[in-house]
Design a protein around this nucleic acid. Structure first.
Length: 810
RNA sequence: GCCGUGGUGGCGGAAUGGCAGACGCGGAGGUCUCAAAAACCUCUGGGGCGCAAGCUCCUUGAGAGUUCAAGUCUCUCCCACGGCACCA
């Protein structure tokens, strides 16, 4: 009876040797070519790494091992994204501080990564909540602030009584369809205006689009970046409303003569000034209040509502006869997109039409519809301009140019571009984040904390819960927030903290130089390691995180802190791992897989192999316990083979299969196809038991190719095979070279190829390398089956693709 | 509604425009066993014909197109998933 492979003992042993000797060290300025493989760092919240994390990390990790064996100096680092809500809520529940929660969680996460055998140089571990780390986050914030890219602005924000201000990403539609709730906790959330720190990402929008040419992301990822930025060309047009100048943005200046109303968002600043001039002030005030408190509801119902400002009219900028354009307040106008005001052209815009129909506003067509156009539908296309005075007869493109040109001459408008991406809110009224390193002087002006005084350390506080007044918990800590300004006068610290994504905007730089106390990272080291060759992460981060961190990096480039202006050369986003029932893993469904149990039962090699085998990295698939079992059996089968290893000669077939496997795996792993690579291993393992004995050279090469997938058993068998009695770092299989293959062995002589008749597969014929179309034709005419199918007809045409196929057309 | 991604056996999935279904799971039958588990061997997309080796038709969400040849390229439609949601 075969001995069972004792993975527990083996894994514990090698893990200890590997990490004590740091065999996966990434060497700065090594002679070898570098590869920087990055996987998004986890935020440690629970007690053990989630199985979803493992699926996210295993494929990139196997790839990094492959590259190391191919002679690269590889950086595959890991760290912890520690700030943010999850540790705070966890700490609150456990009655500890977030600092303590983080310490527990990072320890546990690190152990589980070591248990998985991840090839990480732990000397480069980082923690975004470590003051030595966030010192540099604060330093970077000050760069943004000095450059005017971090500024304070009244912003409509999601407000939650329990959690304070939330980011868009932290807010979800409520399950019952009424309003919105917080992502964590499910508390009710509403819109409120608040003064917030924001990052001016739109200022870099054009570069963020054009520099996509410098990188090699998947086309869909590039497209997602472009769509998220949402650049739109058009014009800003000034309307005179009761003596005030109001700008609107439009992508269709050619429809300017079709304006029959102006609509302002409920938060538009002009409304205040007009209130006393109208006779329906109370109605308007009521409407605005309702719009603010019921925004969510209105959005759900999709019915557009509004209210007229009685007696207030706008003047048309190009048509002096139109001085009586009604002005409406409407909640379908967004406060923070464009200018917060639109020109209503109900003839050529669906939303304007819906609104105008409801409130009895005029509909004036200014673009000619095609003759066959449905009379009731809204024509939003382009065409010949009508009802537009001197512009009549022009096509839309020409009219657009001419109208904008004329507006510019009169100083009543200009060509303009607007973006969907908005200034991103960068402050949180919460405890567990990086303090914003600014100080309010007595005159309320703002001063930066001197660089030598960084980091501004977050004080340890037991009572870190957000007050329901919406102020940061740091507001209560007067001992901490009372300081002196640079002139020695009493001043007060900014008590808002930064959002979770502050630290994760630049973490990849710190791995390069994790202990530097003079700079975020040494510029020469950055030159060596950057850019990141491949970036792996969550599909949900393909838009926001990727964009914000690219923005951040470009600002650092402009400041001279980093030597290039794009951080990631390639991005691949991973799919999701579902429960065995095919549903999303969740406690309430009871379908959560605990990786610790699986690791206990089957070992790391089996789990790693399964996570690689389960499917392509980008796809989503359910967990299948049988699949893991199969991989566990594979590990055992490999172990059982070792007794067959001998000096006996290599059979031709084995040699061919070995070379084929190595060749295929080399190609596949370069393309990150780890699932089919595992298939290749399986095919070869299915062949080996048929042999009387396994030649030593075959065994050696075989162990090398399984090493990235099953590092533990590969090391075990490698050490045993070589008869190493004492651990010596240099002898580790993981520091050896990937085996080469002999192409000449793969020149398979094709002896038979399929023949189609009229595209249908009918038979095979024998071929030789010397065959030409003529000899093939002869062979076809000799084949009984083919003769039968040709049914006496003549060959009209014969297509012969060498070594592939013959197609006979009759 | 918009944007994106995808749709291939009972299931996860393979297929530089050239023999669809590699590999794995599951299933069926068998060997071993008092029996079971494990392990091993054979078969396994569907229909029809045949005692049988085999023969034959159909098959990559639906429909059209390009091509000697389409899972793969083009168009239209349907469905699922992810993201954004009144974006002027």
């Amino acid at each position: 009876m075969m001995k069972r492979y004792d993975f527990k003992t083996s894994e514990a042993k090698w893990r200890e040797y590997w990490f004590n000797d740091n065999i996966y060290e990434s060497v700065d300025f090594s002679e070898k070519p570098k590869k920087y493989i990055l996987a998004e760092l986890p935020y440690p919240s629970g007690k053990f790494l989630h199985v979803g994390h493992m699926m996210r990390y295993t494929v990139p990790e196997i790839y990094s091992r492959f590259l190391r064996m191919r002679g690269y100096n590889v950086l595959f680092p890991m760290g912890w994204d520690c700030f943010g809500l999850p540790p705070e809520t966890y700490a609150q529940k456990e009655g500890i501080t977030p600092q303590e929660a983080i310490e527990q969680a990072t320890k546990a996460y690190k152990i589980s990564m070591m248990d998985m055998g991840y090839a990480i140089d732990w000397n480069r571990e980082i923690n975004t909540s470590d003051p030595e780390y966030y010192k540099w986050t604060q330093y970077m914030f000050l760069i943004l602030w000095r450059r005017g890219l971090a500024k304070q602005q009244e912003m409509p924000v999601w407000w939650c009584n329990e959690l304070g201000v939330l980011a868009d990403e932290e807010v979800l539609p409520a399950k019952d369809g009424n309003g919105r709730v917080s992502e964590r906790g499910g508390y009710p959330v509403q819109r409120k205006m608040f003064k917030q720190w924001v990052l001016d990402i739109p200022a870099y929008a054009d570069r963020l689009i054009s520099d996509l040419d410098k990188v090699d992301y998947e086309p869909s990822v590039k497209l997602a970046q472009k769509n998220w930025i949402g650049r739109k060309e058009g014009a800003q047009v000034k309307f005179d409303i009761d003596g005030n100048e109001v700008e609107v943005f439009t992508t269709r200046p050619d429809t300017l003569f079709g304006v029959t109303f102006i609509a302002l968002s409920p938060q538009h600043t002009l409304i205040d000034q007009l209130l006393d001039k109208i006779d329906n002030k109370q109605e308007v005030l009521d409407y605005i209040q309702k719009a603010e408190s019921l925004t969510d509801l209105e959005r759900q119902t999709k019915e557009k509502t509004g209210v007229k400002l009685n007696g207030i009219y706008a003047k048309h900028p190009l048509d002096a006869t139109k001085t009586n354009i009604p002005v409406m307040v409407a909640d379908y106008i967004l406060t923070d997109y464009g200018t917060g005001a639109v020109m209503g052209v109900p003839a050529h815009d669906e939303r304007d039409r819906e609104f105008a129909s409801k409130y009895g506003l005029e509909i004036l067509e200014v673009v000619e519809k095609p003759a066959d156009f449905d009379a009731k539908a809204v024509f939003t296309g382009e065409g010949t301009i009508i009802n537009s005075g001197v512009y009549n007869g022009l096509n839309s493109t020409d009219a657009r140019l001419k109208i904008v040109n004329d507006l510019e001459k009169l100083n009543k408008g200009r060509k303009a571009t607007t973006y969907k991406v908005r200034p991103q809110i960068f402050s949180r009224q919460r405890y567990w984040g990086e303090p914003i390193p600014l100080v309010y002087k007595q005159d309320n002006s703002i001063e930066a904390v001197a660089e030598k005084d960084l980091p501004v350390t977050l004080p340890v506080m037991r009572d870190f819960i957000v007050g329901s007044d919406g102020t940061s918990p740091l507001e209560k800590n007067t001992e901490w927030n009372s300081v002196n300004d640079s002139t020695g006068q009493p001043a007060k610290r900014e008590t808002d903290t930064m959002p979770t994504w502050a630290g994760s905007n630049w973490y990849y730089m710190r791995y390069i130089d994790p202990k530097n106390d003079k700079a975020p990272a040494d510029i020469e080291k950055l030159k060596y390691w950057m850019p990141i060759d491949m970036y792996f992460g969550d599909a949900g981060h393909t838009t926001a995180h990727l964009l914000y961190s690219r923005f951040w990096f470009k600002v650092l480039f402009d400041e001279g802190v980093v030597p290039l202006d794009e951080p990631y050369m390639y991005r691949m986003s991973g799919g999701m791992l579902l429960g065995p029932d095919g549903g999303k893993m969740s406690k309430s469904r009871g379908n959560v897989i605990n990786p610790k149990d699986e690791l206990e039962k089957y070992g790391a090699d089996a789990l790693r192999t399964y996570l690689a085998f389960i499917g392509p990295y980008e796809e989503t698939y359910p967990w299948n316990p049988r699949g893991l079992e199969a991989c566990s059996k594979l590990v055992q089968k490999i172990y059982d083979l070792k007794i067959k290893v001998s000096d006996a000669a290599i059979a031709d077939e084995t040699s061919k299969l070995l070379n084929k496997m190595i060749k295929n795996m080399t190609d596949m792993m370069d393309e990150l196809k780890m699932n089919t690579s595992v298939s290749e291993i399986m095919i070869f393992v299915n062949h080996l038991p048929k042999l009387e004995s396994i030649n030593k050279e075959v065994w050696e090469k075989f162990l090398l190719v399984i090493a990235p997938f099953m590092p533990f058993i590969a090391e075990e068998l490698w050490q045993e095979f070589h008869g190493y009695t004492k651990w010596n770092k240099e002898n580790s299989i993981h520091l050896q070279s990937w085996p080469s293959f002999d192409l000449s062995l793969l020149d398979e002589k094709v002896s038979e190829i399929p023949v189609q008749i009229n595209g249908k597969l009918r038979s095979e014929i024998p071929v030789t390398p010397d065959d030409n179309e003529q000899t093939i034709r002869t062979k076809v005419l000799q084949n009984e089956k083919l003769i039968k199918h040709m049914d006496g007809k003549e060959i009209k045409k014969l297509i012969y693709i060498k070594d592939k196929i013959v197609n006979v057309i009759i």
